[in-house]
Design a protein around this nucleic acid. Sequence first.
DNA 1: TATTGTTATACTCTATAACTATA
DNA 2: TATAGTTATAGAGTATAACAATA
Lengths: 153, 153
Amino acid sequence: MSTDHGPGPALRRNLVYLLKHAYLRMTEMTTNAVTPYGIEGRELGVLLVLAGREPASQQQAAQRLGIDRTTMVALLDALETKGLVSRHPHAEDRRRNVVSLTAAGDATLRQAIEANDDAEREFLARLSPAAAEQLRLSLQTIVTDPGAGRPAR
Amino acid sequence: MSTDHGPGPALRRNLVYLLKHAYLRMTEMTTNAVTPYGIEGRELGVLLVLAGREPASQQQAAQRLGIDRTTMVALLDALETKGLVSRHPHAEDRRRNVVSLTAAGDATLRQAIEANDDAEREFLARLSPAAAEQLRLSLQTIVTDPGAGRPAR
DNA sequence: TATTGTTATACTCTATAACTATA
DNA sequence: TATAGTTATAGAGTATAACAATA
């Protein structure tokens, strides 16, 4: 019994360790929350990007997610097979694909968002509402505005 | 120009997205910080675990890091080859390996910790000191004390 | 029988290089 | 020539299954 699990004092404050395990846990919870609606956790991210302003190309959608365009292909193949997304050539530049949500995709997204919100609430359950909001804002700051020493790319 | 990079409004508050990209960025910064001392980012984690209370087995060290024991084998092989770590059979249970830092491992760890602290400071640069500490504490709470609905495992 | 370390193997996620069709 | 999408392929990082030594 009590086989001494946790990180131990040396790791307990290490940011790589904390971020990695927080990420893994949130990912698992989102996956579980969203699987009943027929999509994977990563696919929710794609649907969310598409639901915003509709991207003018697959590549633009990939950039918003921070993944490679070749990764996006497989992701969209799966979503298209499920009938949640459709691709059409761009009117003015036929190299590009305009990707849009189908009606089914829109319905799935709505349900998945709710399920994901529940998962986020559970993930944050040990934090006060203020601390939870602060966590989100701090991560936002770090991720979207990395600060000096960071190439514009 | 202005090819419209960032996440877009739909993803900007999504915790999986934020945690993933925060994790990727911190990992990259730690890797860069620690490479000059001849170790990888993940290896710093191993050294930190070993420097705490010395684990009675490889398996215990693996549990503290949250990785599989088979993964730990390869990690320790590399560190042993570099002369930073040594394995000896446990006196009372010869199935187990007691893993300890060599003098070189200890010296490397000390330098790597400093470099990693610098990287963490840069990572947190856009946050106030209070917000930075709050972020660390909130992640700690979530990771080490996940709360209800979570099996003890 | 159960457990530790190990090996072989496979799976997931991701990126790089090369092809195609358009521009 | 250059770019968007695609395909084939390879590389991390990780885990599962099976084996040897020890308990």
